[in-house]
Write a protein that binds this DNA or RNA. Structure first.
Length: 139
DNA sequence: GCCAACGTTGGC
DNA sequence: GCCAACGTTGGC
């Protein structure tokens, strides 16, 4: 199983919106970036990821699970764009902020730090465990 | 609200 | 296939 990070502006699609979808989940539409799309193509059902709020909050606020592999994005006719479906797993006990991540030497190689604009990113097993620990999750 | 960084587009 | 122009993202 692999780990990922999904970034969203809370004003557009927030963790609460995701939670409200329950186990049915929702497609992660709107990605218009090849790198991000390619990562989604690599995802398998059961993979997990962090849900990150950009803009004002800048923190990891929950975890999600991939429940459908990449399929065409229903929000566009452009067949280049695909997305996976995800459902909310757990809310963090303590949000892990971008500041915290930047300040932690163990996380200095995270894509979030080095390529902040990429909206779907891979997370290593080690990074996953460290952040789950910081967030108060079992991981 | 600004601006830097980055990705995409389109003309050549 | 290159590169300038443009649009978007996201941190500050």
């Amino acid at each position: 199983m692999r780990y990922w990070l999904f970034k969203s502006e809370p004003s557009t699609w927030s963790w609460d919106d995701q939670v409200a979808k329950g186990d049915a989940g929702e497609e992660w539409d709107g990605v218009r970036n090849y790198q991000a799309r390619n990562f989604m193509r690599e995802m398998k059902i059961g993979d997990q990821g962090f849900f990150y709020h950009s803009q004002s909050e800048k923190a990891i606020v929950g975890t999600i699970e991939v429940i459908s592999e990449a399929h065409p994005d229903s929000k566009t006719d452009d067949d280049r764009w695909e997305c996976v479906d995800i459902k909310a797993l757990d809310a963090v006990k303590t949000p892990v902020t971008l500041d915290q991540i930047k300040a932690d030497e163990r996380l200095s190689d995270m894509v979030l730090v080095n390529n902040s604009r990429l909206s779907v990113q891979p997370v290593t097993d080690t990074e996953w465990r460290i952040i789950c620990d910081l967030a108060g999750l079992a991981g």
